[in-house]
Computed example of a mutant assay.
Amino acid sequence: MPDDNRVDRRVCQLYQRGIVPYATAWAWQRSLVDDRRQNPSLDDVMLLLEHPPTYTLGQGASTQFLKFDPAQAEWEVHRVERGGEVTYHCPGQLVGYPILNLTYYQKDLHWYLRQLEAVIIQVLAVYGLQGERLPGLTGVWVSDRKVAAIGIKVSRWITMHGLALNICPDLSGFDRIVPCGLSDKAVGSLEQFVPGVQFEQVREQVAIAFAEVFNVQLVEDADVAKIER
């Protein structure tokens, strides 16, 4: 784990956006990853944004967890290179896409997944909620409801895809799938536990927690603003 006492924390560029089409954000991630394959010394990046209603399946995901025909769907459906089964994105869900070079952290995918979960758990604690991990599963639960899903892709130790935290979304879109292939687990949102929670405030807490958990200096849009420990 990085030394929390070091002075020269790694810089991570923070891009906070509103609703971005899934294909646009996906192409943006791939471009950022390609740049860092060619030049590993480039700063890391964290994208925080939302998507319009979209279903995504991991590279090995089964279509049996879709309750509709993807060829005739009125919603966007994408099969992407992350791990995991099918999930749903929509406004009110905060999506975080870290583009990190794990060479500067730990070359350990399990460590990285647990760090992403730790970010969510730390944010939930701000609102007096106990985020929980379930043995053998990836993500974060509050009580019996999964409030955050995680799915990643790592190539040459550079990460893409990431986490999705349900803050105040319309959860009905999850009814059309078996989320993450878990038929016995309910999906929930932060709003269900903290009525009136503000999306922008939670997004800020996610940025702060990410900076603390990964021990980085977040620089928003090329020095416009900074979130530091």
Rank of each mutant, 00 (worst) to 15 (best):
V140W: 01
V86S: 08
I99F: 06
S143H: 13
T87F: 11
K107S: 03
V123I: 10
L94C: 11
G136Q: 08
W141L: 07
L102I: 10
Y112P: 05
V86E: 06
G136R: 10
Y97K: 12
D144V: 02
D108Q: 10
L100S: 03
I120Q: 04
Y127Q: 06
A118N: 12
L94I: 15
V123L: 07
L134P: 00
I120S: 02
W111H: 13
Q130R: 13
L116F: 07
Q106R: 15
V86C: 09
Y97I: 09
G84M: 04
Y104A: 11
P135V: 13
T138C: 11
D144H: 10
N101H: 14
Y88C: 01
S143P: 00
R133S: 10
Q130M: 12
P98N: 08
P91W: 05
Q122F: 00
L137M: 14
E117Y: 09
N101V: 06
L100A: 09
V123F: 07
S143G: 03
L102P: 05
W111G: 08
A118F: 00
K107W: 00
I121G: 00
K107Y: 00
L116R: 02
A125W: 07
I120A: 11
K107T: 13
H110P: 01
G96M: 03
Y97F: 11
Y88I: 03
W141F: 09
K107E: 12
A118S: 14
P91C: 12
H89N: 06
L124M: 05
L109Q: 11
R145W: 05
Q130E: 15
P91Q: 14
L129K: 10
V119M: 07
A125I: 03
Q130K: 14
R114I: 07
G128H: 07
G84Y: 04
W111C: 09
E132M: 15
Q106W: 02
L109H: 06
Q122H: 12
A125H: 13
K146E: 10
